[in-house]
Design a protein around this nucleic acid. Structure first.
Lengths: 245, 245
DNA sequence: ACAAAAGTGTTGACTTTACACCCATGT
DNA sequence: ACATGGGTGTAAAGTCAACACTTTTGT
């Protein structure tokens, strides 16, 4: 059918969409998995050993199974490299479907953002590494763009949600937490103010315990935990909020 | 392959993802197209005339073409109902792929958010209508959830981007604009403060012209326009911003 | 005693809502 | 004149970064 035949379409066109079977494309699910390691935001990537993009680095993931949901699929596939219980957060990012994004054939890809809390060290295959995001190696396909989307999403959500729970271990001191925030945001975060902001927003609470000071002295640090372990919007935008009346 | 064979996967598993052709699923692209009509946020929907979901209302869209990008596809398909030049904004929302979202066969759907400026009235087919979002009719498949996602996305972006340019006509008075914001946000927006906020952020500017007052008198209203007609983040979150130093 | 690290108090800048008041126009 | 709607001034509330100061520990 000629898409210029708008007049005809205007009367009858809308109904034919769910008929026929149409072309089917391969669909894969990928994940940008972040973890903060040694005070740096790192992403889990593996090195491709064969074309296309041989030698470049790629995001983990793979083909969507015939009877799987999208989130279900990426969880399953990540379980082959990251202990699935270690994924503290998972959310969908974007779907890319440029006809030529994969030179070997039309493939759509849905990317997810996954987070692993700091402090654990999942066993990963030999071709797989955690790489610091600021020094991203040459990436296959459009995977670099996906890492960029994930980084922007994480930064934004750190500002108005409790997503820090997914970066931090179950308990932490404020100076540790401020280092996680610094790594993820890319700029300094003062522990003293971060404490007040997150306390006022009800995101964190004191555990009552504290950590002995190190060999160089200093006051012992109080331990905190996040009050919730799932995503919550704690601060709607400070702008254009509804009238208080 | 058994996915419990983690040990094996850890050494060799990562490389087999781009081999083989795997199952292919049908893929469709849908759009949640919003327009503000008579001070109400409306969404473009059409009534299904055949199963599945016969009689329910559905979002416009359809199968992804074999050589089309996703955004390209929804633009083409919307051109059959909305004059494509009238789409002032288009962005990807989410992809849904529950195995049973379409009872007639596995279908993935990528949803877009589209906006049409107020004041125009595109010709639409007979089975297609603009329906107020607060009184959404019974929707087919998971389309109601997509409308919900779109509404949340629009509300959020009104707070920190210039996305108002896509809701408003090229020129407008502040009381008109405040009605568009009220319809989209769902709560009152005072024209007097909206003016200052958007001016300070550099989103809008005066055209220099004004509109004569109506039959009931009143001071003539100044005409404004948006300075940019593409999406810009005008106000990074007021929280956790980088140190000024 | 002194250094080091954690935590508190306080200030100032900025942003936004609320509301009283002034302005320009039609009847 | 007066009603009507547009526009300005200003106050009050809230949030956050900056920084000086205090507390608690190890050497």
């Amino acid at each position: 059918m000629n898409i210029d035949e708008v007049g005809e379409k205007l009367v009858s066109g809308l109904q034919e969409r769910s008929s026929g079977s149409g072309p089917k494309a391969a669909h894969e699910v990928l994940a940008v998995v972040f973890q903060i390691r040694q005070d740096r935001l790192c992403v889990l990537v593996w090195r491709r050993g064969r074309p296309p993009c041989e030698g470049l680095w790629a995001l983990p993931g793979g083909r969507l199974g015939a009877a799987e949901g999208l989130g279900e699929s990426i969880r399953r596939q990540l379980a082959q490299k990251v202990d699935v219980r270690d994924l503290s957060h998972l959310e969908q990012l974007e779907t890319r479907g440029d006809p030529d994004r994969d030179p070997f054939g039309r493939t759509l890809a849905t990317a997810y953002l996954g987070l692993v809390p700091a402090g654990i060290d999942p066993v990963v295959p030999v071709d797989t590494e955690w790489r610091p995001v600021p020094e991203l190696p040459p990436m296959a396909f459009d995977h670099a763009a996906m890492v960029g989307s994930a980084r922007r999403r994480l930064r934004a959500k750190l500002s108005y949600t409790n997503i820090g729970f997914a970066l931090a271990p179950p308990e932490f001191t404020m100076s540790e937490l401020s280092r996680y925030y610094r790594a993820a945001l890319g700029h300094d975060v003062a522990a003293t103010n971060l404490r007040r902001v997150l306390l006022r927003r009800g995101q964190i609470e004191e555990t009552g315990q504290s950590v002995p000071s190190g060999r160089s002295g200093g006051r012992p640090a109080a331990l905190f935990r996040f009050r919730a372990r799932s995503l919550e919007i704690t601060d709607a935008f400070a702008v254009l909020r509804p009238p208080s009346g």
